[in-house]
Design a protein around this nucleic acid. Structure first.
Length: 332
DNA sequence: AATAGGCCCAACCGCTCTAGT
DNA sequence: TACTAGAGCGGTTGGGCCTAT
């Protein structure tokens, strides 16, 4: 046990980037004799490096079976899935991706996938929707900055402000998360919108011409949450562990939906009409009723909003924000 | 053209695990 | 059983590259 003395006491051992000459020496030696003892290898191969450094250079870079280039969609999907199961066990994950090293996967996770999940409102550690609504607090400001409040005439062009788009998207995801959470929480009162409204939210992103939520991300998010399987509000009270069944294992891919609004997932549809139909069937034909809005609710229910037309232009997101905030505060 | 800032990734560090004695 | 050496793993860093200003 204890720390390896490797490298520690070796004065004059070279560190830093490897030269092509060193690479050549290492490759030639290993191809000829195998690596054997890494500790003895540097001396035998004529390298002024520590064994650890040699091993790392070989396993992460020089090994002939290493696959170079971009990660494919399938690989990306697999990494996310495996990470949801194994956590930061990069070496275990790497064994399932031939030609990829643990270091490469780790780097890719930290620089790309982690951010991607965060943007989707998914906690990259738990692989569950982020339940903190911290981003919501910033949404009004973001929307205002994007010109979405109070001046509907400028909304469309303002929504194309690239500088704000990502932040706004992230906040909108939080908003959706809030809605889903409210819908699935027993304590939540009735004024939440029905699933058809959620599907209308999805439709908002259609074509992206309003600069709305990134459609792929939304589709993934909704598929992730298995939204279509959420209970109707009119049904019996949902359980508090409603999210427990969600995992990263199903249908997550950054590009598999093609970016053209074509959901290939089994339970998500892009067409709002189709979505409404499906929801109607699921909810016994009537969808979720907002008639049950309690007197205590400050709102009349989002069914009064024509989401598709109004959300981006008449402060709809603001209304939605208030609605969700209210639902969440009453839930707590 | 210069520069600042952000991103990416190869490499390092420090710890744990495992096998051998 | 206790100890040690060596290997492996995950976290972190630093420097090169790219992009925006």
């Amino acid at each position: 046990m204890g720390r390896s003395p490797c490298c520690d006491g070796e004065a004059g051992v070279k560190k830093g980037p490897w030269t092509t000459e060193e690479d050549k020496l290492l490759v030639n030696y290993i191809q000829e004799k195998g690596h054997g003892s890494w500790r003895r290898l540097p001396k035998l191969a004529g390298l002024n490096r520590c064994g650890k450094s040699c091993r790392l250079r070989w396993t992460n870079y020089l090994r002939p079976d290493i696959k170079r280039g971009r990660f494919t969609d399938d690989e990306e999907k697999l990494i996310i899935h495996l990470h949801s199961l194994l956590g930061n066990k990069w070496s275990s994950i790497a064994t399932e991706l031939p030609g990829r090293t643990d270091n490469e996967i780790k780097n890719y996770w930290n620089t790309h996938l982690r951010k991607k999940l965060l943007c989707m409102g998914i906690d990259p550690v738990t692989h569950r929707p982020r339940t903190d609504l911290s981003l919501l607090a910033g949404l009004p400001g973001l929307l205002a900055a994007a010109g979405n409040f109070g001046d509907s005439g400028t909304a469309t062009t303002a929504w194309n402000m690239n500088a704000l788009k990502l932040q706004v998207d992230a906040a909108k995801f939080q908003l959706l998360q809030g809605l889903v959470r409210a819908l699935t929480t027993a304590a939540a009162p009735a004024p939440a919108p029905g699933m058809d409204n959620l599907m209308a939210l999805l439709a908002l992103s259609n074509g992206g011409q309003h600069g709305g939520v990134d459609q792929n991300m939304l589709l993934q998010q909704c598929q992730w949450n298995d939204m279509n399987n959420l209970p109707a509000l009119t049904s019996s009270a949902p359980t508090s562990d409603m999210f427990d069944g969600f995992s990263a294992g199903d249908g997550l891919s950054s590009t598999e939906h093609g970016g053209h609004g074509g959901a290939t997932g089994s339970n998500v549809t892009v067409d709002p009409m189709e979505a409404d139909d499906q929801e109607s069937k699921k909810n016994g034909g009537g969808g979720m009723s907002c008639e049950q809005t309690p007197a205590s609710s400050p709102f009349n229910g989002l069914e009064s909003l024509n989401l598709m037309d109004n959300l981006n232009t008449d402060g709809g997101w603001k209304d939605l924000l208030e609605q969700v905030s209210w639902l969440n505060s009453s839930e707590l």
